[in-house]
Amino acid sequence: MIIDPGWGDLSMTVALFAVVVALSVREGLSVEKDLVVATIRTVVQLFFIGYIIKALFAVNTWYVVTGALLLMMTYAAKAGLGRMKRPFPGFYLPMWVGIASGTVFTTAVVTGAVLKADPWYRPDVMIPLGGMILGNAMTGGAIAADRLVTEMRARKNEIELWLILGRDYRFAAREAKREAVRAALIPTINTMMTVGLVHLPGIMVGQMLGGVEPVVAAKYQIIIMLMVASCVTVASSVFATLALKRFFTPRQQLKHWLID
């Protein structure tokens, strides 16, 4: 049995919203304004995308589906970098390629080998899965980007030492890159450790509320967890590999003035 909340029912979530705002005011968090904006954006964006996806599900052509994913990737790369504490020049392309590689690889495996979507571009599979993978790739990329800059700054002397001793820049900065990829992966690994014990993922809850058999929902959740791990790893390592170059001149000199 699927409960489809009516519009009136949905508006009852206002109670949740009111509590959040009231607390924010009382505790002087001064996030009320942000909260109002965020809530309005959540509602508008989700309905908007709901209808867009509905429309996308109806068109059954590979180029519309691929085009939609490409557009989402481009936005994701920008949004991912927007989350950085301090922007770093030349990160856009590495971020785009990172997110794209993570998304294409993971989506291909899941839709092709696991779910065996037919036709391969089936929009009701590709769009939600691709979008979700993309979102995780973006988060992973953003964490890796921030961490990479921090590590490069902290390890400046070590990196220059390796260069002076005649190592190439990839060797010199390999620890910084490793730390960046590791940092991107840690939230995912932690989630995988506790999934089902400490929390039930939103998607699984959503599926069960939507009437799906719990074991089937669990299967999907397993796919999703591994999917997230894979896209985060691929996206953050491809990003970090490409982004590393931006810290060095073509003559393999550390651009110390960018990280000082």
Partner: peptide
Amino acid sequence: DPPALRRKISMTPQI
């Protein structure tokens, strides 16, 4: 190639 050059001209940094 910069790495090869730096093995021939080796610097001991101040710090």
